[in-house]
């Protein structure tokens, strides 16, 4: 079971801020599963085949770009958080 947290800006599409997803082994598989459930999310998150730079994805608090990107492995109990990139400074 992977715990997924969305920012409030996703809720127009996802309706809720927290969901749980089963049977996914990587962030890529998680995204595929989420996109099946929320096709509009895919349209907005993926631009020209690439993940938008305006949303960062964290696995247990670490940015996936410093792990293995979309190939980052997930295990039972992991927490995946989507966070708007434009903050701070």
């Amino acid at each position: 079971m992977i715990k997924v947290k969305f920012p409030s800006v996703f809720t127009q599409i996802t309706k809720e801020r927290k969901v749980e997803v089963e049977n996914v082994g990587t962030v890529r598989e998680l995204l595929d599963k989420l996109f099946e459930k929320y096709p509009q999310l895919k349209e907005r998150l993926i631009k020209d085949g690439e993940l938008t730079p305006f949303i960062n994805i964290f696995v247990n608090g670490e940015d996936i770009r410093y792990l293995k990107g979309l190939d980052t492995e997930l295990k039972d109990g992991d927490e995946v958080t989507f966070i708007p990139a434009i903050s701070g400074g």
Binding site: K5, P7, S8, R17, N56, F58, G61, D63, T81, I83, P84, S87, G88, G89
Partner: peptide, 22 residues
Amino acid sequence: DDANRLATEVAEEHPDWGFVNI
């Protein structure tokens, strides 16, 4: 960047708090 990520999560949980740079 870790502090900023956490602050952004907190801001998401408390929409009636004004996080000046979030």
